[in-house]
C-alpha cells in the first residue's frame, strides 16, 4: 500500500515503513540502545533524502523516548538538575548544528556531512566498543578479573579544577557545570547533524567523565534527549522544512512493538557478547556508509530543486 509523504515528497509502502520501524525497534530492544543511529542510515538506504531522514528521525526519537523517560521519572531515576544543565548545552549544540546543516544544504554538501559524521562516529564508537567487549570476553575465559579502581581515583583531577561548581544531589556530585554543559552541547550538535539521540556518546560520558551513579544515567539521558530532539525538530522545521510528521509517526508503532520483543531476547544474552554484537552492527553500518563515499557512484550527477536551495516560498 503506497503512501505519499508530503514533506519527503515521495511515495513509500506503508508496510516497508512499519517494518523498518519494527526492525530497528527490535534491535534497539535487544541491545538497549536508542536506535537513531540505525534508523537514519536505514531511511537513507531506502531512498529518503538524507536531510529529511535526519530531521524526521529527531522527531521520531522524541516520540520513542517519552515512555522510557516517564518510567524512569516515576522510579526517581532522573537527575532533573543535571538534566537541565545538559539541556542548556544541548540547546546550544542543536542550534549550531542546525545552522551548519542549513548552510551545508545550500552548498549541496549536507549529504556528505551526514555520511562523514556517521563514518567517523560509528567507526570510533563501534571500534572502541568491539575492542572493549572482546577484551572482556577474553579476560573472562582466562578467569582474570580486572581490579576495580576506587571512585576517587577514577575521577580525574582536571575535572575538579574547573570553575562554576554546582551540587547535583541526586547524582551525589559536586562538579563544575561546564563539563555537563559541554557534553550536552556536543550531543546536541550530533542530534542536529546525524538525527540521533546521542545516548551512545552521552551515557559513556556520564559514567566515565562525570562519574554519575548508574541508576540515574539512563533516565537523565532520556530526559535530555526528549528536550534536545524536540528543539532539533523545531530548528529543522524552521530552517529547512525537512521534518515529515507522517513518516515519524509511522515509524513509531513498529519501533515500540519491536523494542518490546527485542528486550525479551536481550535479557537472555550475556553482556559482553551483546556488546560485541552491537559493536559489529555499528561497524557494519559504518562500513556501508563509508563505501558510499569511497566507491565511484553509478551516477556522478545529481539534481537539486528549489527547496534544497533554500529558495523563495
Amino acid at each position: 500500500m503506497p503512501l505519499y509523504l508530503p514533506i519527503a515528497e515521495l511515495s513509500m509502502n506503508v508496510f516497508v515503513v512499519l517494518g523498518m520501524g519494527g526492525i530497528v525497534g527490535f534491535l534497539s530492544g535487544v541491545f538497549g540502545v536508542g536506535g537513531g543511529f540505525l534508523m537514519t542510515p536505514l531511511l537513507i538506504f531506502a531512498g529518503v533524502p538524507p536531510a529529511v531522514a535526519v530531521a524526521t528521525q529527531s522527531n521520531q526519537i522524541t516520540a520513542a523516548s517519552v515512555s522510557g523517560a516517564l518510567a524512569h521519572w516515576r522510579r526517581g531515576g532522573v537527575d532533573a538538575k543535571m538534566g537541565a544543565v545538559l539541556i542548556v548545552g544541548g540547546a546550544l549544540g542543536a542550534f549550531f548544528g542546525a545552522q551548519i546543516f542549513t548552510y551545508l544544504r545550500s552548498l549541496g554538501q549536507v549529504d556528505l556531512m551526514i555520511s562523514l559524521a556517521y563514518v567517523v562516529f560509528l567507526g570510533s564508537v563501534g571500534g572502541l566498543m568491539f575492542w572493549e567487549s572482546v577484551r572482556a570476553i577474553m579476560w573472562q575465559r582466562r578467569g582474570y578479573v580486572p581490579p576495580r579502581k576506587p571512585r576517587e581515583e577514577r575521577h580525574k583531577a582536571w575535572i575538579h579544577a574547573l570553575p562554576f561548581k554546582m551540587r547535583f544531589r541526586k547524582s551525589h556530585l559536586f562538579i563544575s557545570a561546564l563539563l555537563p554543559m559541554a557534553i550536552g552541547m556536543f550531543v546536541g550538535l550530533l542530534s542536529a547533524i546525524m538525527g540521533v539521540g546521542g545516548g551512545f556518546v552521552m551515557i559513556p560520558a556520564m559514567i566515565y567523565l562525570l562519574n554519575m551513579p548508574t541508576n540515574v544515567v539512563i533516565g537523565t539521558s532520556l530526559f535530555q534527549i526528549i528536550f534536545v530532539t524536540a528543539l532539533t525538530t523545531v530548528f529543522h522545521s524552521v530552517n529547512t522544512q525537512t521534518v515529515d510528521i507522517f513518516l515519524a509517526v509511522l515509524l513509531l508503532p513498529g519501533a515500540v512493538i519491536g523494542a518490546q520483543i527485542g528486550a525479551r531476547i536481550g535479557f537472555k544474552l550475556k553482556g559482553e557478547q551483546m556488546r560485541a554484537l552491537l559493536a559489529l552492527m555499528v561497524l557494519l553500518v559504518c562500513v556501508k556508509m563509508g563505501l558510499g563515499l569511497v566507491l565511484e557512484p553509478r551516477e556522478l550527477y545529481s539534481v537539486a530543486d528549489i527547496e534544497e536551495l533554500g529558495g523563495s516560498h
Binding site: N59, Q60, T62, A63, A64, S65, V66, S67, L70, I226, A230, T233, V234, S237, V243, I245, A248, V249, L252, P253, V256
Partner: peptide, 12 residues
Amino acid sequence: AVLVALCAGWLA
C-alpha cells in the same frame, strides 16, 4: 511535530 510525537509516544 513535537506535540504529536509526545502524545504518540505517550500513547504507544
